[in-house]
Nucleic acid binder design. Structure first.
Lengths: 298, 298
DNA sequence: GAATTCTATTAGTTTTATTCATGGTGACTT
DNA sequence: AAGTCACCATGAATAAAACTAATAGAATTC
């Protein structure tokens, strides 16, 4: 078997020019090197060096082996460096799961400074999970979960990262546009646009419509936030989204936010991670950055 | 340090699916593998596998290490196979040095059957040597020397491989074209084309012109045999080359051979090798093939 | 030709790798 | 729910290897 040490010895002897010097480079004795190469030649059954006087000269086979060493050793060195980086949490892929559709916009703002700060860490965002967000976190499908539902289970920790108010979004010419707040009944004649997820995961239902026993005139699922805003702006319906998101779009489109109920719907977004991962530098850094972005929310 | 064995273990665990099976593949006990990987993870400071139930699942770092293994191990395996072939004399590079320019044509005829018979042996032909052909042979720059000058020295053996007559080559309309032989004086009015080497290495000088104290009208060095023939055919001069070579070109070009002197110049070509190399199968095979090609010469 | 600077070798030591025996754990069976 | 199976982890013991120290021999230098 050709071992890494053999390659290192071949290279060292060639660059240093002698067994003794090579031994010194490798922090071994001359004797050790001598034994090693003798055994290597015996195992391979081929002479690697010709002993010429008191110097070692590579044979053809030896020159080939040197070429292998010069090719392979850097690969192993690099691999080791990469793994060291993994160990230090300097490199890897942070897989982020999203259980909160509109948070995507918020996440994007976080990702670019993160990528800049951690050039060797990749970011991957997933939105669909076979066994729910928590299952994905437990099953190592993702490393980080963005969710409004912090289900505290052993092995997981949740960190509040930002709060926002979920508001109704209506066209600026809409009758409700100037209302201080909207009551559930007022939506019974509206087309309600939402993300295509089950109703119980939609706050506008579980915290507003459902308790009052009200349904909208029609329910229209739309995939993307941009299109939802376009639909609202063109008077095709109303939707419920974070206030800060509406504020951003308000400058470009005819949309206005209206409070849902007298007190409004207030949401808290959490970042969930596995407890073991808190030691990984870039994970902690991401959570830190997320926590510092709280002000974006309110 | 990442050792070959570590890479082998990573790969085996992944392909076999379990420590036990991997241990079996590597002819070790499960315990050995367990200890090995534990030490590996400790040394690297990073988890390579997550222990999930009773199976081992690669972490991100582990997946990277697997990729390294799949890339590096084949390189080592191949290197080992190559060296095994070196050991058996099945593979290598036969580096042939030429001290006889026109012999190149003869060599080419020999090389193709040799390459066919020894598919793992490469052939390299060198024509320039820092310390002469013998120096190159001694200094392991080449493994085989094609030369007309067999300087018998200890450690080298020379084998006569073919004989030929060096003849003058003239255009078929040339006044000498029909002569039985040519005298040195008759070249004093000719343009003599030769390979670009020192005069003492040219037979037409050291065995024909120089002894008679004659110089040609002009001396024109040309690198390649083909062009030399073209020049002669177009009446730009005469040259001296092996008779068998002239015979070959005679069918395509207007060139004819004329004996140099009454008795002609007879050459003997030898193959020189280091005595130690006679045991290498493919070297012996090459010498054998060369010896059997004698008939080409006369 | 003495001093120096190499490599090779032998014997002894230390370190490392491997095994054996055993315990623990999750997964499947009945 | 208990039993069985298949798997991994561990500690102590053992086998194997890598390494060192000491030394001899050979080539080179002065």
């Amino acid at each position: 078997m050709i071992e890494r040490s053999h390659l290192a010895v071949v290279r060292a002897i060639e660059t240093q020019g002698s067994l003794t010097a090579a031994a010194n480079e490798l922090c071994l004795t001359q004797s050790a090197i001598s034994h090693t190469i003798k055994k290597l030649e015996q195992n391979l059954g081929v002479e690697i060096w010709r002993r010429e006087g008191r110097s070692m000269i590579l044979t053809q086979a030896g020159q080939y082996l040197l070429a292998v060493a010069n090719r392979v050793l850097p690969q192993l060195d690099y691999a080791q460096e990469r793994l060291r980086q993994y160990a230090q949490g300097e490199c890897g892929t942070l897989r982020i799961g999203m259980e909160c559709h509109p948070c995507y916009q918020w996440l994007l703002k976080l990702v670019s400074p993160f990528l800049a700060a951690w050039p060797d860490v990749d970011v991957d965002v997933k939105q669909k999970f076979q066994f729910g967000g928590l299952g994905a976190l437990f099953g190592y499908e993702i490393d980080l979960l963005v969710t409004p539902d912090p289900l505290h289970k052993p092995g997981l920790t949740f960190e509040p990262v930002f709060d926002y108010e979920q508001v109704l979004v209506v066209n600026s010419e809409h009758p409700l546009a100037n209302a201080n707040y909207v009551e559930p009944e007022q939506l019974s004649t509206e087309v309600l646009i939402t993300y295509p997820v089950s109703l119980e995961r939609l706050d506008v239902y579980n915290q507003f419509l459902s308790p009052a026993g009200i349904s909208p005139k029609r329910h229209k699922p739309i995939e993307t936030t941009d299109i939802m805003f376009q639909m609202v702006a063109s008077g095709r319906g109303v939707t419920a989204l974070p206030r800060w998101l509406v504020d951003e779009y308000a400058s470009k489109l005819n949309v206005v936010p209206v409070r849902l109920g007298k007190k409004g719907i207030h949401k808290h977004i959490f970042l969930g991670i596995r407890e073991g991962d808190i030691d990984i530098d870039y994970v902690r850094a991401f959570v830190e950055m997320a926590r510092n972005s709280r002000n974006v929310g309110e």
